[in-house]
Write a protein that binds this DNA or RNA. Structure first.
Lengths: 116, 116
DNA sequence: ATAAAATGTCGTATGTTTACGACATAGTTA
DNA sequence: TAACTATGTCGTAAACATACGACATTTTAT
């Protein structure tokens, strides 16, 4: 029982953490950028453009896929991985809301009896 | 050598991943929200409001502090943890840029020879 | 049918994160 | 000074993430 006491946090906190985790590795950031830069993508090509083995890239792709951030449609012998743009917009919205709340109202000043 | 082949990615990808990682645990999201909701905060109080031990909360605080997202000023016997609002605004900006790039230009259509 | 190519799965080694109790340190007050 | 309180540090166990080679599967072409 020494891990993931996530149950005690709010659903929003858990979801934001989950989404942030998806972006918490440079390879996954790179994959999303790569998919955004092209209109169509193949798994093999992705591995070719990253400094990682095909297996590892596949693993990262699966993680993004598990959150539905990307989708892979089988097209004969190859697979077309695409961004889920609608979901990405929703995720962007969630981050926006979080940062908006985090950056307003904070700034503890000298009249708070606080040193910073 | 079986970890963190980060060196091969761009500085932007690495930094975004690093920042995303900071938000990749509900406890850290909760800490930031808590600090934003109050104007002044004490480490002990934070642990009291989270379903985690004081040690574990302290560990999460250290992680946020390592990225300078929060700051802790010693004030006598207690410590005042505060958000680094300026940095948070910069981080927000980085996420905004990333999502803007990710959500535009993608959407591989039927004329791309792609099934999705 | 068979070979080649593309993608997916498994096993596994190693590094990292999370969580917490126990102890150490420092500042406050009686 | 001595007890008390608030933080910080250490060690450690267990879960999770990362990376990759080797093998399996599936699809296309010959």
């Amino acid at each position: 029982m020494t891990y993931a006491k996530t149950a005690a946090f709010t659903a929003e906190q858990q979801q934001l953490a989950r989404l942030a985790k998806a972006l918490a590795h440079p390879a996954r950031v790179a994959i999303i950028q790569l998919l955004a830069s092209k209109h169509t993508c193949i798994s093999g090509d992705i591995a070719a453009e990253l400094p990682l083995s095909r297996t590892t890239v596949f693993q990262h792709l699966q993680e993004l896929k598990a959150l539905d951030l990307i989708r892979g449609e089988i097209d004969g012998l190859t697979v077309c991985y695409c961004l889920n743009t609608e979901l990405l917009l929703q995720v962007q919205q969630q981050f926006t809301v979080f940062f908006a709340a985090a950056t307003t109202g904070a700034a503890c000043g000298p009249n708070d009896g606080c040193a910073c």
